[in-house]
Amino acid sequence: MQIRISDLMDESCPEKIELGAEDRAMARRVNALVMQKLNIAEPKPRRAGKKPLRTLLLVAAIAVFMGAAAYAVSGWIMNMKKTDEPAVGYWRTADAAGNLTDEQKIVFPDAGMILSYEGPQERTNRPEFRCWYLPSEADFGYTDAEGWTGYLSDSGAGAEIPYIVGAGNVRAGNFRTVINGDVTVVKEEDWGGFHVTFLTSDYTHCQGRWVYDRANYVLLFNAEKGWLVTVTGTDDLDTLEHIARELEIRDSGEPAFDGEDNMVESIGMIDPGRG
């Protein structure tokens, strides 16, 4: 029989090769097509800036759900370690018996800070948030009718990725997060249940190709829930702080990890990016 070599290449995707210039308009068209084919209503990304609430709202909301917390956990610790060495780690999955099923080495040559976590292995619900202030219209991420979401961004264009707001659960053990570039801790504060760290990172001496020279970070870590809410972007730190101060954060009621989770080790990064 005659067979095409290209037809035998399904398992041979080259890694670490970036293709295609960013095209947000095309991504939106494709998104609309996909939602249409799946018969999923495509809610408009909302700018959630209608009610001028202040930090007190955040503090009050956190106080309410903290008081109602049902998890008997002793809490999580987030360790932040600066580094000038590449961060090397693995994506490892294992079966129920603990046998390794997949392993992939990951290297972040531009790592500037490594976040690692200690705490319980048990699951908590994932966090969600709504923004009462955004400096520009969000272009990705969908909110429900009341504005709640787990991700919202203005991914900008060129060297500007104005802001990305994301919320998730940390995992203790072999699960680490990298921030690349030359990272500086600007200040640290406590906001009613969240330890908040302000960071800035300079990418001008990095080996990799970063679209921006500098990115800023506001990390809101909730030690009791094991939540990490990140406000990152190329907008200045004051603007990102404004976004962070007017976040309303709550328990989504949805579990953070599903039953199919078989990851036993991972390393990832939270630098703003478009993929």
Binding site: N31, V34, F140
Partner: peptide, 29 residues
């Protein structure tokens, strides 16, 4: 974090699908 995205996707989160579309459309195109 791709792991988190895939978890949310498996949970039926449409927003996770949109985020993946935003990430990979240019490459796939």
């Amino acid at each position: 974090n791709e792991q988190r995205l895939l978890r949310r996707l498996r949970e039926g989160d449409h927003a996770a699908l949109s985020e993946i579309i935003a990430l990979y459309t240019s490459y796939l195109y």
